[in-house]
Design a protein around this nucleic acid. Sequence first.
DNA 1: GTAGTATCTGTTAATGTTAACATGCTAAAG
DNA 2: CTTTAGCATGTTAACATTAACAGATACTAC
Lengths: 341, 341
Amino acid sequence: MATIKEVAERAGVSVMTVSRVINNSKYVSQETRKRVEQAMKELGYVPNALAHGLITKKTHVLGLIISDITNPFFTTIARGVEDTAIKNGFNIILCNTDEDPEKEERYIELLLRKRVDGIILSPSNCNKNNGISLILSKNVPLVLIDRCIKGLEVDCIYSDSFSGAYELTKYLIGLGHSRIGIIVGPKRISTAIERVKGYRKALNEAHISIDESLIRWGEKYSREDGYINTMSLLKMDNPPTAIFGGNRLITVGVLKAIRELRLKIPEDISVVSFDEVEDISVTTPFLTVVSQNSYAIGIIAAEWLLKRIKGKDKPLDPPQNIVLQPELIIRESCRALEEVR
Amino acid sequence: MATIKEVAERAGVSVMTVSRVINNSKYVSQETRKRVEQAMKELGYVPNALAHGLITKKTHVLGLIISDITNPFFTTIARGVEDTAIKNGFNIILCNTDEDPEKEERYIELLLRKRVDGIILSPSNCNKNNGISLILSKNVPLVLIDRCIKGLEVDCIYSDSFSGAYELTKYLIGLGHSRIGIIVGPKRISTAIERVKGYRKALNEAHISIDESLIRWGEKYSREDGYINTMSLLKMDNPPTAIFGGNRLITVGVLKAIRELRLKIPEDISVVSFDEVEDISVTTPFLTVVSQNSYAIGIIAAEWLLKRIKGKDKPLDPPQNIVLQPELIIRESCRALEEVR
DNA sequence: GTAGTATCTGTTAATGTTAACATGCTAAAG
DNA sequence: CTTTAGCATGTTAACATTAACAGATACTAC
């Protein structure tokens, strides 16, 4: 590939002049600018971002680490991040951790090697860990999404799992349900913990004693987890009358299991979901859910990160938690229970 | 951030020795290796991939350009690409074009600036264009996915739109349908063209004259396109008895429109889809579809690209088209028509 | 004993770009 | 007529790393 030097030779100027043309410096005469541009076109010159980044110490790349792009929730966040990144002249490297803390750490190191200007992370572990420490020690701007980390002073954008789960559970209790199965992700992920906390609070407030066997922690917030745990919940001696899907993938698994058991929603079993299942809510809107604006999470996260990047030298204002309130959308997947027979 | 030079000083060796430790050269004594590793750890040294790439002319990054990560079809491809990239020590920069050829061109230039080792592209235009020419002129390995480009000698991995659409249409004709609406993407995208071709062939073979007003070209393969065109098709004086959704997003729009019109599938209207609508097929498998293995497309595309990258100097074997056969899955969304009343 | 080979380490130059400074030139201001 | 300012260009060094070569040492083979 042609270099700036070759362009300079062809145009009969110094490399510095070419550099000035590339970077739109005003100290280039009309005439030389034209000559240089001509030479660039003839050679098909494409600037080398590696050399540029090496010297300017800026790459205009953001790292985005999420658990799985196959999950539309994260995909929509990614879209929000990308759209605002592009708008600001940045682009993104995308990484899937599959909720694996080790994979997450490897990716963090990789992004740091590439000298990304900042990182947006959905941590697969709610404790401070090596990966995060590494980012902070290198003074690379970091924004967390969807999940927080205990006692860590970092910007974090997420929707309120606790109150969303509380609302959903309270709604079920209001309909007369007292045996409510809940299926969430792994215990090390903050959203799973918070959603179970919200669930507990609603039951406690209603003075319903909590049957721990109704609380199911999955391995990775997956359809399989939803399916397997629903099967097992519904085959209990004293099965729940309602099931709370901890995220959209789990909910899909729940629905699959219920269908295979030939049960009817809501006649035989009530179902609620944390987060929409988009295609289903568009084609047959029957699920009662708590809905999050994931696109907004992506946009806000990117905006904050860019702000931190731009103000890296300035005295930085303290990190913030930005909590979006999810919205309860009542549809037709739950029935009111008669008084206990 | 610490540099190799600082590590060298701390360990009391030359930078070259440190470089050797980083790159696992065998010509380093046990003892110095240990000292260097100690120094690296103490300084929290993270190698600079920019400088490395600048000199080795390899970045171990692949560019992946698709139309929209919000579409699970592409997302699954992306997952396949990423998984095999990682396995081979590569990672990916992801770009969304939204089917906009101009955006596509900008992204191509950007990836070339970053000196990616290769590009996987789902072109938003079935003609050869500036972006593609630029890639080829720079001798950067390129693999196309999902969509081909006329008369271009490049590896291309896709599923057979023509025969998939043919099968689906033939199936509907076999059930007695002759007025079949089809909604696809824009006319400049090869999958849209091929799917309509397959549709035409099936009708021609059955000696059914084609009503051009039943063929709808959308703006970008979106839910909205599916919705609007279904509405308009079903409000025709002589509406179709079956609708063919040109991809999964369009199909979701089709289903939404049908639901809003309070029509029943398949009693009032039959529906088929090119590609699965995953969440729906898992929870309520009723849609008759032609199903593609998008994860495989991603894996194969990445494998081919890596092969091209590794064999860049070798005499390259000729580019190949790898065509995956989609699978017809008959479920319950179509009914047999009685003879014309 | 000498040549040859393998191991370990270092020096110098190169990668493609920009930052910082330097050098002329022209035109305006005094 | 000199000084000053602004414009247009060039020169040199720097960014962090590796390639290519060059020594130095130690061991092996004849």
